[in-house]
């Protein structure tokens, strides 16, 4: 009988070299835990990454791993998956790796719906190169390349993925291991390209940036859980909700003992709803966490299967008699 695997069974044993206190430790645990839960043998996992702090990840899991070059994790992973569809392929990337230098691969893998479990560690900074603004750095933020404040608009990764048609999009946060593992497990069970944005603190450059979402005093006011079939209620006293009215998000307050009957109920199969809700950002709104969309469609591998010809066994089979001539 097989024994039940645990997160520890997926540790490679190599020293983990992230800075003490880095959010990546939590994400490592979440993913190792998810791997153990899925009951997939070690050799059937391939973990592919690009370059950046997050991309050190493959060295710390004892499966097949590939630490590629900056921005190219998804391109490498696509080749792995297409040539061996039996493999369960994870892509570990960051905000710079996945959305800046690797943006093109990201949008095309989403377009094709390649079956890749993509986890984008979003710390809103180029950390490995020591503190330059990334495509998710908030406007006005001071970084080494934006000493007077970031003039550029940021990407909202989850909203980006929803808006270009990704079938599974979610957002988690590095300190909530249980919820993160739950999201990741659902993303892993989704057949197709899944995109999970993991909010992750960088202890060196964005140490305090996400604290308010984690602090027990403030987190209930500043975050909202998105769950299919449920209203988007938040607040310490569960007295607020995000609703959608005339295609616009709004916050309403109510008596928690007597919530209104017509609160918007979240539907994770609705791309329209996913667009509106993944697009809300603090400070006007709480930060939405959870699964924005979970709407399966045929994967790239399945679509490729549809157009296959029968296999031929030798090179001469590629030259039918009618197209050749013989010299005797």
């Amino acid at each position: 009988m097989e024994t039940k695997l645990t997160a520890k069974d997926f540790a490679s044993g190599l020293p983990v070299k992230w800075c003490p206190g880095c959010g990546d430790f939590g994400l490592l645990t979440m993913i190792q835990r998810t791997m153990a839960q899925l009951n997939v043998p070690h050799e059937k996992y391939a973990v592919v990454s690009g370059i950046g702090c997050s991309s050190r990840f493959p060295y710390y899991v004892n499966t097949y791993g590939f630490h590629s070059i900056h921005g190219r994790a998804i391109a490498v992973a696509s080749g792995v998956k297409l040539s061996n569809p039996e493999l369960f392929v994870w892509v570990i990337t960051g905000d710079g790796d996945g959305l800046s230098i690797g943006g093109n691969h990201m949008i095309h893998a989403i377009r094709r719906n390649t079956d890749l479990k993509t986890v984008l560690f979003n710390n809103r900074i180029y950390a490995l190169t020591k503190g330059q603004a990334s495509p998710t750095t908030l406007q006005d933020s001071k970084t080494k390349t934006t000493p007077a404040g970031n003039p550029d608009y940021p990407f909202n990764p989850a909203n980006f993925a929803v808006s270009i048609g990704c079938g599974f999009v979610a957002r988690g946060i590095d300190n909530d291991l249980n919820y993160g593992a739950e999201i990741l497990q659902k993303s892993a069970l989704y057949k197709g390209f899944s995109f999970v944005e993991m909010i992750q603190k960088c202890v060196v450059f964005t140490d305090k940036e996400f604290d308010a979402y984690k602090n027990p005093q403030t987190k209930d006011e500043l975050t909202v859980r998105i769950e299919h079939g449920k209203p988007m209620i938040f607040g310490k006293n569960r007295n607020k909700a995000v609703i959608i009215k005339n295609f616009k998000p709004e916050i309403i307050e109510f008596d928690p003992a007597n919530p209104p009957k017509d609160l918007t109920v979240y539907d994770s199969t609705s791309r329209e709803m996913a667009y509106i809700i993944s697009n809300i950002v603090p400070p006007q709104f709480p930060l939405p966490l959870g699964i924005f969309i979970n709407s399966p469609k045929k994967t790239m591998e399945e679509n490729y299967m549809d157009i296959l010809q029968p296999q031929k066994s030798s090179i001469s089979d590629y030259f039918p008699q009618s197209e050749t001539y013989e010299i005797k």
Binding site: A46, V48, Y64, F66, S68, I69, R72, A75, V76, A77, S78, G79, V80, K81, L82, S83, N84, L87, N104, H105, I107, H108, Y304
Partner: peptide
Amino acid sequence: VVFQAEDEIAAVCSSIGAAFAG
């Protein structure tokens, strides 16, 4: 398997991934 990639870089990187997968 024929993969018409989104760009030249994806073309070579997917091929490297394929080699890694045998």
